[in-house]
Design a binder for these strands. Structure first.
Length: 291
DNA sequence: TAGATACCTTATAG
DNA sequence: ACTATAAGGTATC
């Protein structure tokens, strides 16, 4: 099936390119060089997950999609197309840097990615660059995922928890995960066995959810915040990575505290509270890609 | 509870 | 060519 959504109908519009290449999602893949070699901002992105393939591109004022199923409702959820960006931006501070970030990437939306692949991707993100994190996720899909044929192309889905739980540490190290290999295997086991799963977390208030997520192996507060923001829709979560730590020192020194939890509270307040994660993501993408 | 250190692997700077 | 350092941190002592 296929369809298209007029971008002008979305509150605040859409920048699909910024949304999917700002380091928040590792589920969507580009089709560069295979079925597309046009302008970077109009490229197709594809996603294979739980037996379904969908692909999208933004072109000529439309968000076009094609899928093995009737995917539009899921697409609207995953890209949070209903979020009112002007209302969200109105909660952000008036700083030049924050406003420059919103101007530059206006239309960037926080994703609502599926829980398990997001958990694994951000466990893999420790001490790693964005490009290599994406490479690891591709390797996991290619090596352990199931294949689906769509449009004369073979797609690989992200492996199920049971599959990753059954993988050996050596096998995962072969895929380039390094010391994260046992973390991924053990966390997958916890999800597969039901020891700790999404339902145990996503009904909790934000800080309790973040705390609960650190029960997984390889998940500290920063990775837990990424899962909260990009998979569980806690829009107040602000992952404090090295970029944000630097930004706080430079632009918000009054928010610096002794602990992650306290700094997070102070910075969240500075970024307007309820939608701080939105502003943090604009800021992160801006700082990481300038120069 | 706070502080220090090891950890896989790759890319980049010097 | 070769070494040091950093890359969206976490676990362990």
């Amino acid at each position: 099936m296929r369809g298209s959504i007029p971008v002008a109908d979305l509150p605040g519009g859409l920048d699909l390119h910024a949304t999917l290449e700002s380091g928040q999602s590792y589920l969507w893949d580009r089709l560069d060089g295979e079925m597309y070699d046009g302008p970077p901002k109009e490229r197709w992105y594809h996603l294979a997950y739980e037996g379904e393939v969908m692909r999208v591109r933004q072109r000529a004022g439309l968000l076009e999609w094609e899928a093995t199923t009737d995917a539009e409702a899921r697409l609207r959820e995953r890209l949070r197309l209903g979020d009112d960006l002007p209302a969200i931006r109105a909660t952000a501070p008036a700083d030049d840097t924050v406003q420059a970030a919103y101007d530059r990437f206006w239309g960037l939306r926080i994703v609502a990615d599926p829980f398990f692949p997001t958990l694994i991707a951000f466990i893999c993100s420790a001490q790693m660059r964005v490009e290599r994190i994406a490479g690891m996720q591709r390797a996991l899909r290619r090596s352990l995922g199931e294949t689906i044929e769509f449009g004369e192309r073979t797609y690989h889905t992200f492996p199920a928890p049971e599959t990753l739980a059954a993988a050996t540490e050596a096998e995962l190290r072969e895929l380039g995960l390094g010391y994260r290999a046992p973390y991924v295997q053990e966390t997958a086991e916890m999800v597969a066995s039901g020891e700790l799963e999404r339902a145990d977390v996503d009904t909790l208030p934000y800080e309790a959810a973040r705390e609960a997520l650190t029960g997984y192996v390889g998940v500290g507060q920063k990775v837990a915040d990424c899962v909260c923001l990009f998979a569980l829709s806690y829009l107040e979560a602000i992952p404090l990575d090295t970029w944000m730590q630097t930004a706080i020192e430079q632009y918000y020194p009054e928010c610096a505290r002794e602990s992650y939890t306290e700094t997070s509270r102070a910075f969240r307040t500075a970024l307007g509270g309820e939608y701080a994660g939105y502003t943090q993501t604009y800021l992160f993408h801006h700082l990481r890609t300038r120069d």
